[in-house]
Write a protein that binds this DNA or RNA. Sequence first.
DNA 1: TCCTCATATCGATATAGGTCGAAACGTACC
DNA 2: GGTACGTTTCGACCTATATCGATATGAGGA
Lengths: 116, 116
Amino acid sequence: MCKIYSMETCCPVTESAITMDDAEDMAADFKVLSDPVRLRLLSVVASVPEGEVCACDLNEPLERSQATVSHHLSVLVRAGLITREQRGKWAWFAVAPDRADFVRSVLKNDIFAGVG
Amino acid sequence: MCKIYSMETCCPVTESAITMDDAEDMAADFKVLSDPVRLRLLSVVASVPEGEVCACDLNEPLERSQATVSHHLSVLVRAGLITREQRGKWAWFAVAPDRADFVRSVLKNDIFAGVG
DNA sequence: TCCTCATATCGATATAGGTCGAAACGTACC
DNA sequence: GGTACGTTTCGACCTATATCGATATGAGGA
């Protein structure tokens, strides 16, 4: 049974502590979403009616230079959250199909708010 | 219906883009969990059998200075993920009861892995 | 009151990463 | 081939923050 101090917060929340290696991996995942420009960029990609958007249409709503937007796009692609497809001169981006549910819950703020 | 380009990734993932203000708030939440030392610290607090742990027992497993551990603890407290209680000379920390489910899913890596 | 010890805060340093202009790269069109 | 244009990469700068030694704070105990 429980210890003396507080009845509410007793018993371990998890079975065992994670390793530092696992912590590094998990932190890297969270870091991808820890930048406001990147979150909004992901949000714009996720909300275009066509389901995909040309990079040329992303500079203006982000209010950042074209180089900066390109950098954030590459971070999101490397994390597997969006896909990149070259079509002629243009690069098209879309939410990765297998991550759509995750992206939706992130942008609806279900994760931290715990609505899910 | 859908556009020409790809049938898999059609239609918006979310209804509308988030505002920059919302993005800042959400990014701040993710930033709390984007540091490996902080994640492991949260993990150690969450896994002690007693459900709470004295700060004096946290320096060694974290392999960081007392000042650094104290700093990370304050970040986690400010984020509402853990609670702090002073008892005599000692400060005791526990996972915030109303955030236990969330902390558990974070540390089990359910969020990014999407195990749900 | 003085001493000890646990913890937080301060000041300084180092590193990570967001940002942008410029250059490089690639594709289309002539 | 040469030109134009969209995008990425590079180099530099700058801010945020992780880190630690030193100091301050605060609670017991002698």
